[in-house]
Amino acid sequence: MDPLLHGEQAVLGAVLLDPRQLGGLDWLEPRDFYRPGHQALFAALRKLRAEGHLALGAEGAVPVAWLTDTLAEAGQQVRGLTASYLHTLAAACPRPAHSPVYGRMVLEGSIHRTVAEHTDRLLAIAREDARQHEVHGTAAQADVLAGLLDDLAKRWGTQPRATAPRTPRLPAAVEPPTAVQAADEQFLLSLLVHQNGAIAEVFDWLRPQDFAHPGHGQLYRCLGALHHRGEPIDPVTTLWEVQRRGLLAEGTLTEEQLAPVLRDGAAGSAEWLGEQLLRSSLTRAAAGAALQIAAYADDRRLAPGQLIGHALHALGPLEEVRARWRTAASPPTPQPRPDTGHAARIQAALARSPARPGTRGSPTPSHVPPPAPGPQRVHEHTSPHHSHRSPT
């Protein structure tokens, strides 16, 4: 027995028996039905309602025209629908008044199915991008999936909020690193060990979990610890840090893996190699998230709100890698150079410009001596109150 099939038949049967039930199913869409015939029937019923079919206002028994017009309209979209199947749908509905509950069953199945379809698409694109050493298709599909989850949450009536499952699932099994990936990671680590200051080019955005090989990630963690403490990085200090962390003793690293990194020098761009490694990390994180979400979508015990919350939580690690990828791939912001000659040019221009006479606020040069006092002459009629002097 298929509960979803019974739910689709029941909601269609409810509307066929009582056309007024469509008024409480505005939130349900034809694409929510799994079977193409059911999609066509529900679309036909909605169209007849929008056109104001006479059956919507009829009292008592439903007119036969409601069934025949529905069958004729749906038959334009799919073949194989018969009048007898409409009677089967009507018989599948126990109570027409329960149509909103049947509709929620259809919507719940649609949410699980839609999430699974988009997740399969993300997984396929991530694997193809990994083979092509690209990330743009994966990033675009991840955005499509995140937007879909937001829309589905609104349709279901919940908030699109990431929620961790109560019982964490085991990490999804992803493809093991290839020989080419292991060689590329080993080459980058060798460069970081032997090229002075190379780790500064990748330290801000490259993380140990970006390495496909766990041992390489732990070795990079050792180099990051040396860089963080301001200690030099070379084969001797690296070997000492590996020994302090017990990586050889516990088997995380083997001498066969460590020896080429410490022995063989490498030359190249650490930044470019780190970006290539981060590309692989992004597609690998997308594949892991897709496998996790696919497992949630297949679990019919999860309500749609739980499924959406767990799916958004599974996308979290992918978004973290994408944020670091944007940092690594974005060009450095050019910093404006300070114009040190600007102030000097202003001073030179002021020195060449003579001060205007009588300018307010113009200070008198201190090196100019004041005028010397001379014989004081008395002018006649210098003042209206000054009397003439008589000759002596």
Rank of each mutant, 00 (worst) to 15 (best):
M1H: 10
E8G: 08
A10L: 13
V11G: 04
L12G: 01
D18R: 10
P19R: 09
G24C: 03
L25A: 07
L25W: 07
P30W: 09
R31Y: 01
F33R: 12
F33Y: 11
Y34A: 08
R35V: 11
P36A: 13
L41Y: 14
A43N: 04
A43D: 05
K47M: 03
L54A: 13
L56M: 07
L56G: 01
A61G: 00
P63Y: 03
V64W: 12
A65P: 00
A65D: 00
L67M: 10
T68R: 08
R79A: 07
T88L: 04
P94E: 09
R95N: 10
G103S: 00
R104W: 09
T114S: 02
R121L: 08
L123G: 01
A126Y: 09
R131L: 12
T138K: 12
A142T: 07
V144R: 10
V144H: 07
A146Q: 15
L149W: 14
A153Y: 13
A153M: 06
R155E: 13
Q159Y: 15
T163L: 15
T163P: 01
A164H: 02
P165V: 11
R166E: 13
P168E: 12
R169T: 00
A172Q: 15
A173K: 12
T178H: 12
A179R: 12
A183T: 05
L192T: 03
L192H: 06
N196A: 15
E201D: 12
V202P: 02
L206S: 05
L206C: 05
Q209P: 00
A212H: 03
H213E: 12
G215I: 06
H216Q: 13
L219I: 02
G224C: 07
P232L: 10
D234A: 07
V236L: 15
T237C: 07
W240I: 04
R244P: 03
G246K: 01
L247T: 01
E256A: 14
P260Q: 09
R263Y: 15
S269M: 09
S269Q: 10
W272P: 00
G274M: 12
S280Y: 06
S280C: 05
R284V: 00
A289E: 05
A289L: 07
A290Q: 02
Q292Y: 14
I293H: 05
I293Y: 04
Y296N: 03
A297T: 01
R300G: 04
A303F: 07
L307G: 04
P317F: 06
E319C: 01
R324G: 02
W325Q: 08
R326T: 00
P331A: 03
P332Y: 05
P334R: 02
Q335Y: 11
P338Y: 02
D339S: 11
G341L: 13
A344H: 08
A349I: 00
R352M: 06
R352K: 11
P354T: 02
A355N: 06
R356T: 04
T359I: 04
R360W: 08
R360S: 05
S366D: 13
P371N: 12
A372P: 11
T382F: 11
S383C: 15
S383D: 15
S383E: 09
P384D: 14
S387Q: 14
R389K: 12
